[in-house]
Amino acid sequence: MTNRAQTDQDSKRKQPKNMPELIRLENVSKCYSSGPTCEVFPLDSVSLELQQGERMILLGKSGSGKSTFLNIVGGVDTPTSGKVFFNSKELTSLSSFDLADYRRKEVGFIFQSFNLFPTLTVGENLTLPLELIGDKDHKKARDLLAAVGLADSWGKFPELLSGGEQQRVAIARALVKNPKLILADEPTGNLDQDTGATILKLIDEVSSMSNASLIMVTHSPDALWIAPKHYRLRSGRLELEPSLN
């Protein structure tokens, strides 16, 4: 059976029509080794296409390579073999400088443990991605903070916020620069069920607003509704989960 994802099986909801391709992976493999030969294959000849605005869920056991997948797509890691394209531009041929530029402009990361900078205020955390791309207009950041329901928290330090609030700030930080791609690595993993649900709803809303593509790693069955396509990484192979789709 080919490992290529079956992109023609569109889901019932949130499936964009006739959108251009955003991400394409061609036979991407990643191996880790302590010697000359590969010992661990978190990714083995993975191929995938994702259109602009399209969403997917990535499932898999711990250590199955989900985060490696996100890192390669996000340009923070490089595959051992294979090619990754973003907007038809081959990421795997880019220099580390250009990859940083790609992350800076095109990708928004949401982490399980929020990873806000404790010494920056909420506002400073939020405007940091904008500053990095030379955008001095902070109105966008304020609007987005209001959109996630934390308009009053602009000058606060993250330590004064609850976990759910911190994750909301983290989501706003990921989206503030209008990235084309959002990569979320278990964004509700550190939150209780109710807060997790709120956060998922928020991710759904704000990514819809910006028409960003979303790849989300999760273990939570409650989060599966956010994307029509569910893939599972098993022994390095990417498989579409037919039963869930």
Partner: peptide, 16 residues
């Protein structure tokens, strides 16, 4: 190192 990595995720180059 965690914060430093986050900055890398946000797009800071190793030179920066």
């Amino acid at each position: 190192s965690r914060d430093i990595r986050v900055l890398g995720y946000l797009g800071l180059t190793s030179g920066e």
